[in-house]
Design a protein around this nucleic acid. Structure first.
Length: 484
RNA sequence: GGUGCCGUAGCCAAGCGGUAAGGCAGAGGUCUGCAAAACCUCCAUCACCGGUUCAAAUCCGGUCGGCACCUCCA
């Protein structure tokens, strides 16, 4: 299988460090505000990545952190971190903020069919380890302490820039590099920062009270749970620099070979503009409410992870229509064959092969989805041929195909990703419709029909009551056998 | 200034040297009491210019137009 490695800027054959196992670390969000749709692309993509590895028989350990030690807002000079600011605005403890949005985030992910990571480490719970790595870097001469803060000395690390291919010397010392006057060099970055008076999140350290730097947690937590060398490190494209660059420098500087393959997903744009910069209206909660998790997930997988994808109402609508076709075919198959069966002569073998080839080529989900559409057409054609005696067996194989790939790997059919729709309005409408039909029968004095309707509804658990004020209905337990 | 990405049909979106996947929308047809679904058929030479090659959307050079990162950001 081929994966595109940012480190080498080319597709490489993926060979796990330890045969049969894969270790994956993905940088998660800083939980300080409402999750938006941009937060979903990476998790959804990597959810498919781990499902695919699992499908291919590998044991996966998937670690994805959540940053609960706020980093600075754009007003670096003010030194207020995002969590603290939010905490002040919401009048909560910083950790209360982190906890609140942590759950918002994972609730949203669950609705998108994203399985929980095997480990969700938090920065606040790994202070000791972060101090240890800082200490190690100091001892190795790659860091220096200034007035309670410890900085990584970029000039001392020759390979700095290997991932982002940036030559530190050529970087424009632009807008606001001069963040803290106590750095030896503006390119240096903090491993540990002194906590100013009033800074709420603080921990004791050999250099005084402070808090860990922006990039340290990932170096520490990934290697703690996956080993000093591990297979895959993922994140958004924007994390390549400086975040991942710094992670590599720290980890390698501390003697850890670190990640072997780096995968980065591209952005979602909205009207051609970077999502993170367009304001509002893209809150995940709202989109989930309106479209459901499966549709969003399906749409996200409709573009290759390394391409920018423009997210709009039109494109989302188109995706939903397409998904419905897939679901319809699956429903038809499931009706004919409630249980999946796979025989020796699997008629879906060629389609499986195509799907597999697509996924093995750097997780080409759009192509994999195209295979699903081709399969649907074949299935619909076969099943619509009346009197085809081979249909049931074929349907069983079709069900196996869809269950295996569309449901288990892509997560766009059945299972948890299926949105639980609120059918209240539909139910109301249906009962009222049937009730109206019954009233017509009563007016015709066709009581046989009206009573039959009431009885059938009662069997289904809907009780109709004729009152002087009109017909009322309520739900109860289904009575008797439900026929049909 | 440095680093990198993109421009494929009305829209979304694969392909990245061998003669344009898939979806949505649209057109025609089969089926059908009507409608829907389904199925069949149709619908692009790949921003532009030049070069390399037997062969280029795919490689090289240039032009134009978008975008991102270099600062928190998925």
């Amino acid at each position: 299988m081929q994966v595109y490695n940012t480190l080498t800027r080319q597709k490489e054959t993926f060979v796990p460090l330890s045969e049969g196992h894969v270790g994956i670390y993905v940088c998660g969000p800083t939980v300080y505000s409402e999750p938006h749709i941009g937060n979903a692309r990476g998790p959804v993509f990597f959810d498919v990545v781990r499902r695919w590895f699992t499908h291919e028989g590998l044991r996966v350990r998937y670690v994805s952190n959540v940053t609960d030690v706020g980093h600075l807002t754009d007003d670096a000079d003010e030194g207020e971190d995002k969590l603290a600011k939010r905490a002040r605005l919401e009048q909560l403890e910083p950790m209360e903020v982190a906890e609140k949005y942590f759950w918002r985030y994972f609730d949203a992910m669950a609705r998108l069919g994203v399985r929980r990571p095997d480990i969700i480490p938090r920065a606040s719970g790994h202070i000791t380890e972060q101090l240890a790595m800082t200490q190690m870097l100091l001892e190795g001469g790659l860091a220096y302490e200034r007035d309670g803060s410890v900085y990584f000395d970029v000039s001392a690390w020759r390979d700095y820039g290997e991932l982002s291919r940036r030559n530190p010397d050529e970087q424009q010392e632009g807008t606001r590099v001069e963040v803290r006057g106590d750095k030896d060099d503006p390119r240096d970055f903090a491993l540990w920062k002194r906590a100013e008076a009033g800074h709420i999140m603080r921990w004791p350290s050999p250099w005084g009270d402070g808090y860990p730097g922006w990039h340290l947690e990932c170096s520490v937590m990934s290697t703690k749970y996956l080993g000093d060398t591990f297979d895959i490190h993922g994140g958004g494209l924007d994390l390549i620099f400086p975040h991942h660059e710094c992670e590599i420098a720290q980890a390698r500087g501390a003697g850890k070979p670190f990640a072997r393959y780096w995968l980065h997903w591209n952005f979602l744009t909205f009207g051609g503009e970077k999502m993170a910069k367009s304001k509002g209206s893209l809150a995940l909660s709202e989109l989930l409410e309106e479209h459901g998790g499966v549709a969003l997930r399906f749409h996200l997988l409709g573009a290759h992870y390394r391409s920018v994808s423009d997210f709009s109402d039109e494109s989302l609508h188109a995706s939903k229509q397409g998904l419905r076709r897939l679901h319809d075919a699956y429903a038809a198959v499931s009706k004919l064959a409630p249980t999946a069966t796979q025989s020796q002569n699997d008629p879906f073998a060629p389609l499986r092969a195509r799907f597999e080839a697509a996924m093995n080529d750097d997780f080409n989900t759009p192509q994999a989805i195209a295979v699903l559409f081709d399969a649907s057409r074949e299935v619909n054609a076969k099943l619509s041929r009346a009197g085809d005696t081979g249909a049931p067996a074929y349907a069983g194989a079709a069900k196996a195909f869809f269950d295996d790939l569309a449901r288990d790997v892509l997560g766009i059919m059945g299972g948890q990703a299926q949105s639980v729709q609120d059918d209240t309005a539909l139910l109301d409408g249906l009962v009222e419709l049937v009730s109206a039909q019954r009233q017509e029968a009563r007016l015709r004095r066709d009581f046989a029909t009206s009573d039959a309707i009431r009885d059938r509804l009662a069997e289904l658990g809907v009780a109709l009551e004729d009152t002087p004020e009109g017909v009322r209905w309520k739900r109860g337990e289904p009575k008797g056998k439900v026929s049909g």
